[in-house]
Amino acid sequence: MENRTHISVQGLNVHIRREHVLKDINLSIPDRKITAIIGPSGCGKTTLLRSFNRLIDATEGVRVSGRVLVDDEDILDPRAEVTHIRKKMGLLLQKPFPLPMSIYENVAYGPRIHGIRDRRRLDGIVECFLRKASLWDEVSGRLSQPASALSLGQQQRLCLARGLAVEPAIILGDEPTSALDPQSSQRIEQTFTELKRDYTIVIVTHILRQARRLADHVVFLYLGELVEQGPAWDFFNNPKHPMTREYIKGLIS
């Protein structure tokens, strides 16, 4: 499989109704690394993430301009076909939202909608990705139970397995640990570091420490503008922009 999953953003502007939410964003996201998008709440982090897989289309009164290139394809092009773009990216939301079906069906959902019907193949897929999300050991005996019966932390890992099952190259996480207890958060973070060998991971977070722990690359947004981006070590130890310095010190929140 070809591995050019590189995401690059060129001159992205997003307006929602009269608000200018993202202002002329230019950035590129390195492959097979964890990129953290950080910044205070309301600065456009989530909007940026949602323009990567065009879930932003569903927002009322939204206007988007600029280019987001994924595998050299401009996904913002109105002619672009969104379902195959989204298939390339798994998404984790703040709270886990299991689909209203069993644990098994949750993971099998993606492969099924993309046309896999063979039961034995589905069984294999379900097991494989539940293992990858390190959930298999906890649920292997009760795959037919409703997903809503799992704990929050387990549900979030189930959502991860569900996302992985469509074999994306990129994982997008929108503050994926913010609704979880510390232990579950740790498991998710751990899973992320294991996954970055095979996947490009982009997470939005407002927890600086999480970014320090996880990120290889950091993007800092403030009020819709890209302030600074770069390798995590440089970013935290040698910030160039004064605003970044203040944010890291905890002066802006």
């Binding site: 379902t83 298939k87 990216m89 709270k95 939202f97 689909l99 993606g110």
Partner: peptide, 14 residues
Amino acid sequence: PSEVREASLALGAT
């Protein structure tokens, strides 16, 4: 909840 729809759309469902 709209997140349930998004979860499905994000997997590439029509």
